[in-house]
Design a protein around this nucleic acid. Sequence first.
DNA 1: TAATTCGCCCCGCACG
DNA 2: CGTGCGGGGCGAA
Length: 869
Amino acid sequence: MEELGHEDVGEAEEAPEEREVPEETGRTGESLPLPPEGKKVYLISVEYDAAKKKAYLKLLDEDGHVYAYYDRSNHKPYLITDVPPDKVKEIPGIAKSRDFIDAVRVKKYNALTGENVVLTKVLASDPLAIGGKPNSFRELLPRVWEAKIRYTSCYTYDQRLFPGMPYMLYDGRLNPYPNDLTSEEEKELRAIFQGEKEEYVREAFTYFPLLISSTPSVKRAGLDIEVYTPRENLMPNPTEARFPVISVALAGSDGRKMVFLLERSEQEMPRGQSPDLPSDAHVEMVSTEPELLRKAFAAMEEYPLILTFNGDNFDLPYLYNRARSVGLRHEEIPISLAREQAYVINGWHVDLYKLFKNAAIQVYAFGDIYKGFTLDEITKALLNKGKIEVPPALHGLTSGQLAAYNLNDAEITLELTTFQNELVMKLLFLIMRISRLSMEEVVRLGISGWTRSAIYAAHREKNYLIPNQGDLASKGQVQSKATIKGKKFQGAIVIKPRTGIYFDVFVMDFGSLYPSIIKEYNLSYETIDCPHPQCRNNVIPGTSHWVCTIWQGIFSTYVGLIRDFRLKWFKKKAKEAKDPESKVWYDVVQRALKVFINASYGVLGAETFPLYTPSVAEATTAMGRYAINQTSAKAQAMGIAVLYGDTDSVFLHRPAQKQLDELSEWAEKTLRIGLDVDKVYRYVVFSELKKNYLGVTPSGQVDVKGLLGKKRNTPEIVKNAFNEILRVLANVKDEKQFEAAKQEIKSIVKEVYQRIQKKQFTLDEVSFNVMLNKHLDTYTKTTPQHVKAARMYETAMGKSLGPGEVISFVKVRGGTGVKPTALATVDEVDVEKYVESLRTTLEQVLNALDIRFDEIIGVTDLSSFMQFS
DNA sequence: TAATTCGCCCCGCACG
DNA sequence: CGTGCGGGGCGAA
């Protein structure tokens, strides 16, 4: 029933009574055992037991057993303030609070001033006393720091814990599982970091084990439920849970396949195995719903990790609320609900929809190969298969078919974590280790939250005071003006392309340009515009920002380490690795690191990031502009034609190998950033537009960038014509072959044009597919065409459409000019509009090839006229 | 709860 | 009716 991963799918039920949802997760590790002595266990989450007022670690072994280890250090929640301890104790709201423990002196390093300062640490017995309720200590003190960090995170950093890493109980104490580097690894690591500062190398050695330590195989199950609805298109409301759960499926990593099916009077098929189901599936018919739920819960409890697709918003809340309303007691349900999240008692729940929707995962971990966020779309892209085709109404299904459909979704959900040698699980563990967050937090938060946590941990590690956003205000002065209206600072530059076709093009680029700049130029919130007069001449070109020459920036160190690990170790190893197993591992690590570094610059420019420092972001892009401008100038001075460039790349026409080497050396020496050949093209076709070109590699592969023919919302008939042209271009080996290719291309254009004119197409071929990004009623300023179509669809079909939905519509004559594809006929299609779409899409390529679209269709008109006359 | 800017296209809408 | 601007979507980096 997860279907679409966003809220408001289908017709909403009548407004439900707001049911109270507990804030607290209600989870406790009380009933969980200590890990056995000497057993390797993995830290999956750090949690807080509100009753015991203690943090505890929740651990997992490879057999699927869950353990808890409660704090034994008597660690307490705290905040930092500059009010002296005796003054703190004079504040009645604090001193008289029964949660107040003590106020003590604490030494911290203030990175902004470079001073060691003595501040006050105010300790409490309960995290809520620090912050989170009306009279929390943080509200009663004029100036506080570190008062908004979740207690479980605070505990993680202070105890130097690494979620995702193995631990072992020894003499009743939990210790990191021994994970010594081999002497060879140590030697190699030293070699890589040769020339770096001692402190930097020391940190490299601290963090390296996180990246080479293997990840466990986690016992887990994909879960999916089906709910009866009286009408089609009605999305059952999980808070109300008015309709019966008719099927629950689990697919376990141990190979078990289970379906619990409710016997229904209207059942069309006799009980028993259906031919649609896999033969090894265990299907159990259950006569009452409470019994069904109990059985499903019992099955769930056999797996420490439950995977769902949209389970936070649908499956788990539905199960919980339905179970309650059919009479199960709270204690019988292994689910606990929070506001936006659903937890599994004594285990963990990962909603894969949230993970895959995470932009950083989508773009950097999976190379942007899936665009939408439905289970269907993600599955098609990553696993090369879709869901079972569902008949229009769930009602028409036999029990066997229902079970098969249900189980298939559970299996696919599981498979999203098993494909490519458990890529997603490995990625999760690596992100946990780097970000220092529990598994469920990694899934819930985005890259900003991950980076925040990682950098907070670095502060605690060095005993730096974590600054408040307000402390950085003086460091946030922006000097540049953005090119685009409404943006906060200037970004990258794009070198205007030389329109036309060029053979033998070499693309050089700065690998990880912004992270490299941040590292190499020591950019960090405390190093930009630092207080030292002697640093003032260390200016970032094109700005009046200077950078500290004395302090080593904390942010630049963090970014630098990740970048160096990725570039100098894992990318290299991935290339060199012989056995596939380790190749996959190196590649996963490399991808995880990529996620973090690529976002490092972005978060600095995001107001919601607690260490928001736009001046650092601005200095980064300024240095980037300087780098590419200098490189372009240098190349031209060397007599190489620069055809194009964007942000971190230059496209060079027929450079000699010697020249490439020279340029590379020059960049390393003068800019201190690596510049290498990234790509070679047999030829490149540049349109007159920036960010729009296509290149053909020596092997005949065609890279298309930005062209309309590539865009998701371009109609298929136009896209197909575009792709046919590409196929012709892919075969062109030299200038001589272009003439023949041009003729071929012309005939392709002519043919498609005629097809459009004669309406020889299906509606799907001419549909525009545009995503709805907001709720329908929030389009108030203008009414875009896809919104018009969506509204028509709603009225006609009685089904509501929400954000994330892709609207399919065609352009028609008359009326408002558009119609949802489902409501239109070929007859009413506005042919002119499609000719225009064909024209603009193809002209981006044709112009560069010196082919006139108008001449082709003009000729066509004439010839067809002659034919008929 | 939330990474950034640059660039292009189509369209809707207000203004002259 | 033409023009210019901004909303909206999608892509490049």
